[in-house]
Write a protein that binds this DNA or RNA. Structure first.
Length: 506
RNA sequence: GCAGACGUAGCUCAGUUGGUUAGAGCGUCGGAUUGUGGCUCCGAAGGUCGGUGGUUCAAAUCCACUCGUCUGUACCA
């Protein structure tokens, strides 16, 4: 007997994967629609690519025998080729462009939203499946394309309801970072590991502060749990140079650029990067985006793998408290940069490209906390209650539903067990229905129906205490002629809609 | 990946030194009420105490391993 129980399946989602309910989906739709409008306004057009790609097309090495799924979800097709779930939207786009290079207009501006998958440790606010919304310009060599995308990123934030000053688009250039490496003598393949360690240290500035970065540039750092992270092992003067560079961000963009010029004068690549930043800064200025929206910030690192020029990051700068009252920073909610080598992996010619990706899932969490999203309830359908179960009556109820639907009003006939009438109203209440339609034999004979305003009724329930009064007074309920049903429901819905608007304004 | 903390009902948690049939609140379902949501009252269902192995006359409790969750850290296209 007891054995039987253990056979019952435990209902669960794979770790790092979640289900999404109507409220969340409604909020996400709303967000995606705003981002899409912004991107289209800038002239971008949609394209969709599959969730699966051949693993080599994603820029990953073939999976090892031992750990075929490190980082990505991979599987072997029946012809033994490795394929993987996409882990971003950029690599698949590069593949798409390479296939359709002849027919696509260049520069090619495209956008797409979709779920991406990462096979790594999940955490709160960090699932293994999440949505990104990308925009890319392919075949545009000038940094004016990068500048445009930064400005579009800024516009997107504001259209989503994030106030100016609550976010910033921070911009840097990979060539500048390379220049710094050159200046401190970290050139050539033999120093590749050290360069990586230095960049990672710089990337941690906002979390560990300048002192933490200093430790990581030198011997290493011990964290709160006693775990030790090995540092880059730079000498005193090298570390100082890197730190000076990280702190080169100044009050004005012009000053920042001047600081960088002074620090990197010895590096040709570095100076190229600084000049690109200067060009972008001029463009931002001309379009008036330098009022705190877009900022030149030398500490931005971003993806170490494929960026070749400007890199940018959208960051939320405000703090909110979590349930336990601790301050939480949302930090980066999107980023991108120039990847001149990504398409040309498939081709024999260079294809300069730049793009930006919004982390929709993370941004949504932030907007919800801000109260900019997901505040309004999902409004349910009008529920036509079933009082009599005979065929003729059912036909009448069905006709009411049909009339409402024809008028564009979301409606349904109660399809559960109609035995207990109370259950039907309980159901309508749970669906957050605006109203229920009731017609028993009495009403039918009079050619009427009862319209019960469930929203108003809920309000009235606060002042009624005993059940008897509550039932008999039939709060917020009124009779209308059957022929006026659609018009009356319409009126009620409009009134409720106004109420909601007024409330959200207060 | 590394380190630490924690795993008892759908959820939040009690559970004494190892000792009879493992409890509560909330939620769910049913009823009071076969023509009215909320409130109230009554009742019921729901647990191999994360899993496996061990110590013991006896394990939710002690030990080992394992899986999972959380926190920090590393990685992050």
């Amino acid at each position: 007997m007891a054995k039987k129980k253990s056979a019952k399946l435990k209902a669960r989602t794979p770790r790092g994967f979640v289900d999404r309910g109507p409220a969340e989906l409604q909020a996400m739709e709303q967000m995606l629609s705003i981002i899409k409008q912004t991107y289209e306004l800038y002239g971008f057009e949609p394209v969709e690519t599959p969730m699966f790609e051949y693993t080599d097309a994603l820029g990953k090495f073939l999976p090892d025998q031992d750990r075929p799924n490190a980082g990505v979800f991979s599987l072997q097709d029946d012809d033994e080729q490795w394929m993987s779930l996409r882990y971003d939207l950029t690599a698949p786009l590069a593949r798409h462009v390479a296939i359709n290079f002849e027919t696509l207009p260049k520069p090619y501006r495209s956008y797409r939203a979709g779920y991406v998958f990462r096979n790594e440790k999940p955490g709160p606010g960090r699932d293994r499946q999440f949505m990104q919304f990308d925009a890319d310009t392919i075949g545009a060599p000038s940094v004016s394309a990068d500048a445009e995308i930064c400005m579009m990123a800024s516009d997107t934030m504001e259209r989503l309801g994030i106030a100016r000053g609550d976010y910033v688009i921070r911009v840097n250039n990979r060539k500048v970072l390379d220049g710094v490496m050159e200046v401190i003598g970290l050139v050539g393949d033999e120093h590749a590991d050290t360069r990586l360690t230095v960049l990672r240290a710089v990337d941690k500035l906002d979390r560990l502060g300048i002192d933490g970065v200093k430790l990581l540039l030198g011997e290493g750092r011990k964290d709160a749990s006693g775990d030790f992270t090995k540092g880059a092992g730079l000498g005193e003067s090298e570390a100082e140079k890197v730190l000076a560079f990280v702190e080169a961000g100044a009050e004005t963009t012009d000053q920042t650029i001047e600081n960088l010029r002074a620090l990197i004068a010895d590096s040709k690549t570095g100076m190229e990067g600084v000049e690109e930043l200067a060009t972008m800064a001029k463009l931002f200025d001309a379009a008036c985006y330098t009022d705190g929206r877009v900022l030149i910030d030398p500490s931005v690192v971003r993806g170490l793998e494929y960026y070749t020029g400007p890199v940018y990051e959208a960051e939320l700068t405000f703090e909110v408290k979590d349930e336990k009252g601790r301050p939480v920073r949302f930090g980066s909610v999107g980023g991108g940069g120039r990847y001149d080598g990504l398409v040309s992996r498939f081709m024999s010619q260079p294809v300069p490209s730049t793009g930006f990706s919004v982390g929709v899932s993370r941004l949504m969490a932030a907007l919800t906390t801000l109260g900019k999203l997901g505040q309004e309830d999902v409004v349910g359908p009008v529920v036509v209650c079933v009082m009599d179960k005979d065929i003729d009556s059912l036909a009448h109820y069905q006709a009411m539903v049909q009339d409402l639907r024809t008028a564009g009003i979301r409606a349904e006939m109660y399809q559960g067990n109609p035995k207990q009438f109370g259950k039907q109203l309980q159901y309508a209440d749970r669906r957050n229905s605006p109203c229920a339609i009731i017609q028993g034999s009495q009403e039918r004979e009079a050619g009427e129906v009862q319209v019960k305003d469930l929203i108003e009724g809920k309000r009235l329930s606060a002042v009624i205490e005993d059940n008897k009064t509550w039932r008999e007074s039939r709060p917020a309920q009124f009779a209308v002629k059957r022929n006026d049903l659609v018009a009356e429901v319409k009126k009620l819905l409009a009134a409720q809609d106004d109420d909601r608007k007024n409330q959200s304004e207060n």
